[in-house]
Amino acid sequence: MHSNRHLSLILMFVCGLLAWVPGVWSGSGSAIAASIPAQVTHTDALGRQVQLDGAPQRVVSLVPSVTETIYALGAQGLLVGVTDFCNYPPQAQNKQSVGAYDSPSIEAIAMLRPDLVIIAADMATPALLQTLLELDIPVYSVYPRSLKATIEMQRNLGAVLGYAEAGATLASQLEQAIAQLNQEVNQTGVETSPRVLLTIMLEPLVIAGTDTLPGEMLACAGGVNVATPGSRYPMWNMESVLAFDPDIIIVSPHPGTSSPRDFFLRFKQLRAVQQGNVVEIPADWLQRPGPRIIKGLEALRQAITDAATHTPEKIDATQH
C-alpha cells in the first residue's frame, strides 16, 4: 500500500516531466495511461475545454441547482463545498459553505483543496473564474437557462463527476416528464389553455416572462403566459394584472414578505381570486433548474387542471 503510493507519486512526477517535453506525451501516452487516471476533456457551458484527471474527488458547487443535482446523482460524497444558498436537500446545509454564489470566499474555496469548482456562467464574474484558474483549480461552468439546457446539464454533470449513468437516468426522467406533459396538453387541446400570471416577487411586482425557465415550464404544462412574448422578468403593477385578468396566478412564498396570496385576495374582481386559482408553488420548484423542476412542472399542470374544474359558484361556497 505504502510503496504503491510512492510509486504512483513517482509516476505522476515523471508524467509531469514528460508533459513538458513536446512530442513525448503523445507518443508514449498510451503506454502509461493504463496506470494513471485518464485525462478527460469536457466542454463546459462557456465553451471552455476543461481537462480533468479522470473523475474529480473534491468538488465545490457554487450553484444551488448543481448542488441539488449532485445529490440527485448520488454523488454527494464528492461534494466538499457549497454556497449559503444551497438549502436543498437539507443535508446540503451541513456541507462546508464558501459564501454567496456570486461572491464566494476564494480562500475558503482554496482551503477545501477542490479538484473541481462548478460555477454558473451568469452568476460568477470573469474575475472569479480567472482567480480560480490562476490557483490551478479546474473550473466547470453551467448555464441552465432552459429546460433543454437543464436536461443537458444533468447529463453532463453525470459525465463530469463519473456518474454518467445516473446523469442519463436523471435527464431521461425529466425528458419523459416533459414528453408526457406535451402529450397530455395535446390531448386536451390548446383552445382551453388558461392564461397564467407567474409572479416572482410582489413588492415590487416582478413576473416571469415567456423567455425564462418558469415561462418555458408554464408553456410545457399547457398554460399561456400573460406576459408579453419574449419578455424576461418585467416589473408589473396591479393595474396590468387587473387589465389582463389572468385565469390563474402563481405565487411563490418568499422569506421577508407577507403571505403572497393575501396580496391578490384584496382584489375580489380578479377572475383568479373569484375562482380560487391563486396557487402557491415554491419558488425553487420553478426558478431553480435542478431535479425538482419535475415537481414544478407537475404543480403547474395540477394548477391548470384544477382551474378547469373550478367554477365561480363553487369557490364562493368554499370561501364563506
Binding site: D84, E203, P204, L205, V206, P255, T257, F263
Partner: peptide
C-alpha cells in the same frame, strides 16, 4: 440569508406601487 437582503434592495430602489 441573502434573500431578505435582495428584497430590501428592491424595496429601497424606489417604488410607488406600495399597498
Amino acid at each position: 440569508p441573502a434573500d431578505p437582503m435582495r428584497n430590501a434592495l428592491f424595496w429601497l430602489a424606489g417604488n410607488l406601487a406600495r399597498g
